[in-house]
Design a protein around this nucleic acid. Structure first.
Length: 463
DNA sequence: TTCCATGATTCTGT
DNA sequence: ACAGAATCATGGAA
């Protein structure tokens, strides 16, 4: 609009001063010699110019303006004035300038677009936020990938950002279109009274679009920032430690202590544990990694815990064996899983001492006595071993073997037994070899034996 | 506030 | 790829 003002100013300056330009005016030569005639024409041109200037300030919809525009267009001086304006415009070179301007794609804008697309903010709605959330979860290494609370929180916030972004974008586009239409109408209207080529209108539209796209870029930039902040918060959150539930820890501990000779769960076992504990496989791996190293570092500290879980598992084992024996007498030994449905609530004990006592009583048949002669224990252990190792290999097999592992531990840990069994490597309290490594697996690392099906006895059936 | 337990991460070795 | 080891960072009890 400055250009228009400049034109008007120039035009007014040239004509009203009474000094025509050298470029050959097409204005009709003055008639007569008296000053009043010249003054009259000056007044006439001045009026037209005034109308032109004021008309641009008016709204196009105003009926009054229409009338005035009509009057202006039909004015007898209009063609002459139009020529003058053309000439002046040609002189100032406005029609040429910037005609061949072209804008190369802004790399920054492209980056922003790509990022918004990748984050699921831009682009199609379907799978947008969810895909990005999944990507973020995957980027977190799966450690907290299944944390549904944080996951949904992230998704919800991303959706919110997406909504705001699209609303604002729509608003800007609408405003841009409205403004463009308005300007085009204005210019078209003005093109009747002053020289405006379609190319210039197009150029003006381009300028408007550029202005609006710069606003859009700011919007995209802000959106990107918001997404980055959200994402960093989400990814930081994965480091936030949340203790596993008591139940989960119990399940993991039971597995650990019942497989103390080889506490390396297989992939299937990890998956099973993960499912039972409602955590991820990675978390199971982490837990076992930490547990192994910490147990090894300070066996003494874990003694009580080991006793507790071992006793618990041993009781389970004893029940399992008893059930197996009974089952073998009443049912076909090849019947899968029969007789091994155990419920944890049967073994609700409140202290390690109680469990040890129970265990001892179980072995001795006495009540509250720890003075069990060593050979008895050994016999019992041997019988247990023979039970699991030979008689019930096919059916009880792997699980009982792991339970037996636990029994070994408990027996070795229980006061009064250590001396008698100490010399036997089989009764090593912590199943660690001289090199500080775990002994070779004597028990299957998996809680899922190839011979067993779902519902069979595990060391960690208590969920 | 301090201290310990514990889940997660990172680095290194195999 | 997996395990061990060290370390970080947080939760929770004292």
């Amino acid at each position: 609009m400055d250009e228009q003002a400049r034109i008007m100013q120039t035009l007014g300056g040239v004509n009203l001063s009474g000094h025509p330009g050298q470029g050959g005016m097409t204005l009709p030569p003055p008639h007569g010699h008296d000053g009043t005639d010249v003054d009259g024409r000056k007044q006439d041109i001045g009026d037209i110019l005034h109308q032109i200037m004021t008309i641009t300030d008016q709204s196009l919809d105003e009926a009054q303006a229409k009338n005035r525009k009509h009057g202006l267009n039909c004015h007898r001086m209009k063609p002459a004035l139009f020529s003058v304006l053309c000439e002046i415009k040609e002189k100032t070179g406005l029609s040429i300038r910037g005609a061949q301007e072209e804008e190369p794609p802004d790399p920054q804008l492209m980056r922003l677009d790509n990022m918004l697309l990748a984050e699921g903010v831009a682009g199609p709605e379907k799978g947008g936020g969810a895909a990005a959330a999944a990507a973020a979860a995957a980027a977190s290494g799966g450690a907290a990938g299944d944390n549904s609370i944080e996951h949904s929180d992230y998704r919800a916030k991303l959706t919110q950002i997406r909504q705001i972004y699209h609303t604002e974008l729509e608003k800007y586009e609408q405003a841009c279109n409205e403004f463009t239409t308005h300007v085009m109408n204005l210019l078209r209207e003005q093109s009747r009274t002053r020289p405006i080529s379609p190319k210039e209108i197009e150029r003006m539209v381009n300028i408007i679009h550029r202005k609006f796209s710069s606003i859009q870029m700011q919007l995209k930039q802000s959106t990107c920032e918001a997404v980055m902040i959200l994402r960093s918060r989400f990814l930081d959150a994965r480091r936030k430690r949340r203790n596993f539930s008591k139940q989960a820890t119990e399940i993991l501990n039971e597995y650990f202590y019942s497989h103390l000779s080889n506490p390396y769960p297989s992939e299937e076992a990890k998956e099973e544990l993960a499912k039972k504990c409602s955590i991820t496989v990675s978390q199971v791996s982490n837990w076992f990694g930490n547990k192994r190293i910490r147990y090894k570092k300070n066996i003494g500290k874990f003694q009580e815990e080991a006793n507790l879980y071992a006793a618990k598992t041993a009781v389970n084992a004893a029940h399992a064996v008893a059930a197996a024996v009974q089952n073998s007498q009443t049912n076909s030994p090849t019947t899968p899983n029969s007789g091994f449905q155990m419920k944890d609530e049967e073994f609700q004990l409140d202290s390690a001492e109680n469990k040890n006592t129970l265990l001892t009583n179980m072995f001795t048949g006495s009540s509250g006595s720890y003075s069990l002669p060593t050979p008895n224990t050994g016999d019992l252990f041997m019988s247990m071993q023979s039970l699991s190792g030979d008689s019930y290999q096919g059916q009880v097999g792997a699980n009982v073997q792991s339970q037996v592992d636990t029994l070994r531990h408990v027996i070795s840990q229980t006061a009064g037994y250590s001396d008698g069994l100490g010399g036997n490597a089989m009764y090593s309290p912590h199943s660690l070899n001289a090199n500080g490594g775990w002994q070779d697996a004597t028990t299957p690392s998996s809680i899922i034996s190839p011979t067993e099906g779902p519902g069979s006895v595990h060391s960690d059936t208590s969920i």
